[in-house]
């Protein structure tokens, strides 16, 4: 059986909120290392990969592999009933028909309990090869969100060019063009404001802004976001969570004109 207790419902609320517009029905794969999710969007150009390590829960118990097939719209409806600071416990039997969610208020004696019916989801699993990326950029997640939103006002696509000079986000649209360039930057007092560019070779790729703006819904989960780029491979956008847990998005590049 599964029993996983989160100190704050907020974490799961934010994760689900960040991915629910990209993917609808997902298997939450539970085993003794934690709860993982991998799902592609309908057009097969974006993939979300979530890992909530067992250390992110206290306690965490999962005796055998359990796949919880959950519709994220349904999960969102139930999670709305949880306060951000509630303690959230997920429970399921070994061959479950439902997943049970319990929300406990730390301040009052209120306990709420919901069951969500599970779905049988036949989901393809993709193996993502280990990649040595040509460029890795760590930057404030709010800055990345702002750049994507600002450029989306002009264009559907953004080119991300990474060189010794820094990283340049540029777009061209009907009304004109725009770009934002960031250089490496260290803020000793506020490390969350750091921009770190790790470059082995220059790289330039074009991506759909609609998807990037969607990924940025995860910004509240982490002060920093990591962008990993190599020519002709999908972009990795990673939001690191506590205890080595993470929320990652992959996006296929746009090719040709």
């Amino acid at each position: 059986m599964l029993e996983a207790r989160l100190e704050q419902a907020n974490l799961l609320k934010k994760v689900v909120d960040a991915i629910k517009d990209l993917v609808q029905d997902c298997n939450f794969d539970c085993n003794d290392s934690g709860i993982a999710l991998q799902a592609m969007d309908n057009s097969h150009v974006a993939l979300v990969s979530m890992m909530l390590k067992s250390e992110s829960f206290s306690p965490f118990r999962c005796d055998r592999n359990i796949a919880l097939g959950i519709n994220l719209t349904s999960l969102t409806k139930v999670l709305r009933a949880a306060q951000n600071e509630d303690i959230l416990t997920l429970k399921a039997e070994d061959a479950p028909d439902v997943v049970n969610l319990v929300f406990e208020s730390a301040e009052s004696d209120r306990i709420s309990e919901y069951d969500i019916k599970l779905m049988d989801i036949d989901q393809e699993h993709l193996g993502i090869p280990e990649t040595e990326y040509a460029a890795t950029i760590s930057m404030p997640s709010a800055e990345f969100q702002r750049i994507c939103r600002d450029l989306m006002a002009l264009s559907e696509s953004v080119s991300i060019e990474c060189s010794k000079e820094g990283v340049k986000f540029a777009c061209q649209g009907d009304i004109g063009s725009g770009s934002v360039t960031l250089r490496s930057h260290t803020n000793v007092d506020k490390p969350e404001m750091n921009v770190e560019i790790d470059l082995t070779e220059p790289v330039s790729l074009t991506f759909s802004l609609k998807y990037l703006v969607g990924f940025c819904k995860a910004s509240s989960l982490s002060g920093q976001v990591k962008l990993c780029l190599s020519n002709e491979v999908p972009l990795l956008v990673e939001y690191a969570l506590a205890n080595n847990s993470y929320l990652r998005f992959y996006l296929a590049p746009k090719i040709g004109d």
């Binding site: 097969h44 150009v45 993709l126 696509s157 074009t206 491979v233 999908p234 040709g256 004109d257």
Partner: peptide
């Protein structure tokens, strides 16, 4: 118009 290959071109089905 630019196109996007789907992710099956990059990742392996397991």
């Amino acid at each position: 118009a630019p196109f996007q290959k789907d992710l099956y071109n990059y990742f392996i089905k397991t």
